[in-house]
Nucleic acid binder design. Structure first.
Lengths: 188, 188, 188, 188
DNA sequence: TATGAATGAGCTTTCATTCAT
DNA sequence: AATGAATGAAAGCTCATTCAT
């Protein structure tokens, strides 16, 4: 039941937004009553927090596994981008809720999630910094802003990319990595 | 008065979000009453629409001016990125409201804004396509996804970039353009 | 309207208690809507505070006037008892709400009201102390506990005394004062 | 378990009031579940009734024993006052709940408790009436109103008297009895 | 004897909106 | 051009109670 509540909420939050989805909407969709909801969650915000935390924890976890797999920074970068893009297919709704509704967490919870997001970004920065150091990446690269650029690119995909269209997630990820590594400019 | 209402709303919407800002909050901040608000706007959503439309119209307008200035695609690309990044300093709040609250427009208005956003993107795509055609950009480039990548990168800056920090908007824009054109990889 | 809301609330709170009276009950009794209530009071508790404060302020005010009228402690005592007893007829409902529902004020408001109640008691203590000093009252009298005794006696009247019965408020007050001054014991 | 439920409830009802204490609060404080509660009590109100009835029955019982001990009305009066005052130390919480929450009993139960309270008062009235008849007490005394006065005095002590302070319960009882018998006035 | 899941009615509060003035 | 009183629908949340196990 708790899982059903989470699943249904993700669906509705993604469609209508957190504030525009009432508890009534959620429980009605499941054919239960509001009392049931409050048996499992102390507040509506706690439900949102559950969604956020499970999402970011999963990302962090998979990011760590990527790092453990290989020491090659190009491959690490590629896998992190893949991880994010392929996630759209499996957890797109949850991701969109995650990126959009963080503002509705209370101070404490918001800080906690932002902290974990920062962790993810810092790991990415470190990968880039390592690549700069071992001369895989250009020495003029700034790891921080480059990480922001990559995350902007991938996160935005949640808004427009349809994984069931002509282009497979893997292809989009590859395209982005190539774009990032080689740049736009034609070279002889 | 109408302008004051818009200005104050932008401030509040950015801080607390559209749904979490009540009309009461807005009019109280200006020391007027709700009646006043309804003299100038038929609904709360109409106010949001005003904010959205003025924002995107201004962007489209400036984008057109960029295109008129030069025919060099590299320069056009550079100026479009600059336009978006420098906008953070002057209209950051409005921008964040724009990116975040579009969902609260009604069907008609939402469609209209999305349409104008699409226009902006398509122009960017066209610039890229032109660059591909005249061999400035790599022939393997996909204009659509590349445009999305650029927009993701720049839009995300609204979330993290502090224009009053160590790095000037112009610098960030330059960094992004270089990153886009040259890529990350070290080349001999 | 605000006064009507207060008046009706006093009636209902006295009958059913504060917690058992819903806003719905109050506004329904007046034929208005809940919105109307919240136009005049920020919370239900604020309404209760209004009732409490107006009650105790009135008592304190009348107590001061009693003190100003005469310097004779016997008369002062008599008038304070009269003040409390006669109040049952005019403000019995409000009084019962006052004695009963103070617990439902929040910390700040509760403290404020308790403070004013204490003031009333301390003035009474002072009257008694003065009487002891000038040998009107027995030198073994303890002003504090005697004041509590008097207040217990009078306050309890709000629970059982029916001012429209055979005994007029003035008579009850006189009876109590005599009992207090002379005691129960038969003396030759 | 039943006794634990009662004991914990008394504690909580006294602190927060009957309506403001949820069953959840009670069972949580004991580390059991709501089902357990409903095994022992059919309703929340039944629990309140148990508290009331055990309290008043005990008072009535002790009052009867006082009467059986002596026929001297002065002593009877003294012992009844002592009984009530000393009770604060041993059953203050229960007493405060008793005086405060009777309104939350349903019609039948409320009537039953009020009836027993009346019994207690009537016995007290009878003691006074006997004293008047045998000229121990003044012939102008009205037993009914005098009983109310005494009860007001003693009951109010539950609100302010701290039995662990400087004054022992026995002392307060003695002080009150002396005040009642001798009055406040200095006599040569 | 006790649990835990679920109910449903009711609660206080919020808020966009209306409208006579 | 602006006010202030009022509305009504809906929101998040609480809680006594039920019941199969």
């Amino acid at each position: 039941m708790k899982e059903q509540l989470v699943a249904e909420s993700v669906r509705l939050f993604e469609q209508r937004g957190f504030t525009n989805t009432s508890l009534q909407d959620i429980v009605e969709a499941l054919g239960v009553t509001k009392g049931t909801f409050y048996y499992y969650f102390p507040t509506k915000e706690a439900l949102l927090m559950t969604i956020h935390e499970s999402y970011i924890d999963s990302l962090l976890d998979r990011q760590q596994r990527v790092l453990a797999q290989t020491k090659d920074v190009r491959t690490q970068l590629r896998h992190i981008v893949q991880l994010l893009i392929e996630d759209i297919q499996t957890h797109g709704q949850q991701g969109r809720v995650f990126f959009r509704e963080i503002r509705h967490l209370d101070e404490t919870n918001g800080a906690r999630i932002r902290d974990k997001r920062r962790q993810f970004r810092i790991v990415l920065e470190q990968v880039i910094a390592n690549g700069v150091e071992n001369r895989t990446f250009r020495h003029t690269l700034r790891p921080d802003m480059t990480a922001f650029a990559i995350l902007g690119m991938t996160n935005y995909s949640y808004q427009w990319y349809q994984p069931d269209g002509e282009m497979a997630p893997q292809d989009l990820a590859d395209y982005y990595v190539t774009l990032l590594l080689d740049g736009m400019e034609e070279r002889p």
